[in-house]
Design a binder for these strands. Structure first.
Length: 693
DNA sequence: AATAAAACCGAACGACGCGT
DNA sequence: ACGCGTCGTTCGGTTTTATT
């Protein structure tokens, strides 16, 4: 099937992590700068003519960091002809047709050297026999034959190459011609039509087993005619998680790598690949969980049925808590608080398609999504009380069924995820699919399951949620009705609103749900979930098309990968946070002391006597109200005309705004001085422009 | 001829680009 | 801002091909 070529995937271009990859490559390259020793090939190397001398001057290192890339490109562009010549030189080889250097050390065919390998490092020109011989264990190298005018790629099988199983690369003495099978094996450099000779020895096992032992994953179970190498499956697994590649584009790339001119002749193994990669990834997750190696005997019972990666830094009773932690004083409460964040996402949707109703996730209920059947039963149970309380604060998507509903072709409009808000690690069983908008019953279910394995009566829970002010109103009532175990913990719960989202809430609401004004919360901003969405959303294009089971498997794996990466980085992450916290603490103490020393004692005594408890003062005016009150008052005094007053008040307000903007620009300038990136510069210019207006 | 495996097909709809 | 057309990605089902 000939597919149309397509442009680059936008998500790949936008991927913020490309920068990191580039850095890693750079480090890798610099590590190889040592002079390479002479290749110890098994054939002597014919002399290669001297390359024209080229003098490399180290690029002029300008002091201005912005010029680095342009200078580097200029340095390379100056040598463009040299590089093009070297690349073109690869299209020909002066050793074509000479006596095969391999024949002198074994093969005596006496044939001219017309073949070479594109993948062997520094490979020689060889005759067909010697090339085949040198590739008995390298069946997927791309081979080229000199075809009078140019090098033409040919499959190794054309030279009679066969992959022999079970005898260290040699043919099984018991094998007959009926044991030779044609297979299509997909490897990271393309799709290969190969011949395989199975082993006939007693105990050699089925063809499927023999393939697996050779690190080929069969596409089917009975008589496989297609297989994928383990390295390919591993490669895609990483490509999909790190670069956001979808299977569709990946398989197409492999076909192009095989033959980018006549793709019609390349076997397409897309469907087979989809099936196998799903199962492969499931196997990898199982393997990583430690279950096949019996880790269950070493972990608490509540985690036996899980393949999810736990947050190593959050309090997990019976795993990472100090002995007798329950007895510690309440002012150490922050150490025993689980900071959770729950949030809805409306990009990770799922289309309505013809669907196999029996296809459930291979890790159903054992990873990040909740178990399907129980969730469906719960939803049927709560179907009657669908109409939820109208939102009394500002208008948000969450809790509002109508606003977030999607078209008729969407069966799942999005999902809700629980994560730990301090370390941004997703909670096991903390994700649920939505049906019609972000209803609190969905959030309740996710929350109850996200904490059921962890919490006990001594642990505190601080939950941040965009609509926390609404969510907490009937939380206790709902939990009592549906999750009695969790409802017992309600007096340990604090529901707040993430620091950025809270600015969209009504003035009267803000102080009561502010992380800044709540003790035992430190500098938690509660926005962790939003940043997870950014990572997961790049998979929305592919997961939207999948059926229920595949979608859950794919998302479970992305979430697991996200957790694993966070876990690997967490030592460095927490160390840097800790260092920063110490520095900032010193600054704050200094500031505090300065203010204290500059303030009269009687003020301080009076302030200390004040009650710090928050009270809702209904007669407090919002900014807009205040503005109109002042206007009214001034007009009342008759000292100004109506317009004059209005201008004066506006003038004062504007003055305050300008002063605020000036502070912002100053702070941004400091940021820019510290890290003069393009983005920062752009941001600064924009702010100055705003200020000028 | 029987059967397993591969090839083909149409549907779904949000994202995106283009023209008005 | 709006309508329109194409692209991207996966699915299940049907038809065709390859192998035994």
């Amino acid at each position: 099937m000939a597919r149309k070529r397509k442009g680059p995937h936008i998500d790949e271009i936008d991927s913020g992590r490309l920068g990191k990859i580039a850095v890693e490559n750079f480090e890798y390259n610099t590590a190889r700068k040592q002079p390479r020793t002479q290749a110890t090939s098994y054939v002597p190397q014919p002399a290669v003519p001297e390359l024209p001398p080229l003098e490399f001057q180290s690029g002029s290192q300008l002091k201005d960091k912005h010029m680095l890339l342009s200078q580097m490109m200029k340095d390379f562009t100056d040598k463009k002809e040299f590089f093009i010549n070297e690349i073109l030189r690869q299209e020909y080889d002066i050793r074509i047709g000479q006596a095969c250097p391999g024949c002198s050390s074994g093969c005596s065919s006496g044939n001219p050297a017309l073949y070479r390998c594109q993948e062997c490092c520094n490979g020689p020109m060889l005759c067909a026999e010697c090339l085949k011989e040198s590739h008995c264990l390298l069946p997927f190298h791309h081979i080229e034959k000199w075809n009078r005018d140019f090098f033409q790629r040919i499959p190794l099988s054309e030279l009679g190459h066969q992959i022999m199983l079970g005898h260290n690369g040699h043919v099984c003495p018991g094998a007959s011609t009926s044991d030779i099978k044609k297979l299509v094996i997909t490897y990271i450099n393309g799709v290969h039509k190969v011949q395989i000779i199975y082993c006939r020895c007693a105990g050699a096992g089925s063809h499927v087993k023999q393939l697996l032992q050779a690190r080929f994953f069969p596409a089917t179970l009975i008589e496989p005619r297609s297989a994928f190498t383990f390295s390919l499956l591993h490669h895609f697994h990483k490509m999909s998680n790190e670069a956001g590649s979808a299977a569709y584009g990946y398989v197409e790339t492999l076909q192009l790598l095989t033959n980018d001119v006549a793709m019609d002749g390349v076997p397409e193994r897309y469907q087979e690949f989809l099936n196998i990669i799903r199962f492969w990834i499931h196997l990898q997750v199982e393997k990583r969980s430690g279950k096949p190696l019996g880790i269950i005997s070493r972990i608490p019972k509540s985690h036996h049925n899980s393949v999810a990666v736990l947050c190593p830094a959050c309090p997990q009773p019976t795993i990472n808590m100090a002995p007798n932690w329950e007895e510690e004083a309440e002012d150490k409460r922050h150490k025993h608080t689980l900071f959770l964040n729950v949030d809805g996402n409306f990009r990770l949707s799922q289309k309505a398609k013809k669907d196999d109703p029996n296809d459930t996730s291979l890790a159903n209920g054992q990873a990040y999504f909740v178990e399907d059947t129980a969730y469906a039963e719960f939803l049927a149970e709560v179907a009657e009380d669908l109409i939820e309380d109208a939102c009394t604060c500002s208008g948000f998507k969450a809790g509002d069924i109508l606003r977030s509903a999607r078209g008729k072709g969407t069966v799942v409009p999005g999902l809700v995820c629980d994560s730990c808000s301090q370390h941004m690690i997703l909670r096991p069983k903390g994700s649920v699919d939505l049906q019609i908008g972000e209803r609190f019953c969905n959030v309740d279910y996710a929350l109850a399951h996200a904490i059921e394995d962890t919490v006990n009566e001594h642990l505190w829970i601080t939950l941040s949620y965009d609509v926390g002010c609404q969510y907490c109103i009937n939380l206790s009532k709902r939990m009592t009705a549906h999750f009695p175990e969790i409802s017992k913990l309600m007096d340990r719960f604090t529901v707040l609103v993430p620091k950025m989202h809270i600015k969209a809430h009504k003035d009267a609401c803000q102080p009561f749900y502010s992380l800044n004004l709540t003790s035992h919360t430190g500098q938690t901003d509660g926005e962790g979930g939003e940043r997870i969405w950014h990572e997961l959303n790049q998979f929305s294009n592919s997961t939207r098309e999948m059926n229920h089971g595949s979608r859950h498997d794919a998302l479970n794996d992305r979430m697991g990968d996200f957790n694993v990466r966070k876990m690997h980085e967490i030592t460095e992450f927490l160390t840097s946070k800790y260092k920063k916290a110490i520095e900032e603490r010193e600054e704050v103490i200094q500031e505090f002391n300065n203010i204290t020393s500059a303030t009269p004692d009687n003020y301080i005594t009076a302030w200390k006597g004040l009650d710090t408890k928050l009270v809702l003062q209904k007669d407090v005016l919002a900014q807009e109200q205040m503005r109109s009150e002042i206007k009214k008052e001034m007009i009342g005094k008759g000292s100004h005309s109506k317009t004059g007053t209005s201008n004066l008040v506006d003038f004062l307000m504007e003055g305050l705004e300008i002063s605020e903007l000036q502070c912002d620009v100053k702070a941004q300038q400091e940021d820019f001085d510290e890290s003069p990136t393009m983005t920062n510069e752009k941001h600064l210019t924009q702010m100055r422009e705003n200020l000028r207006r």
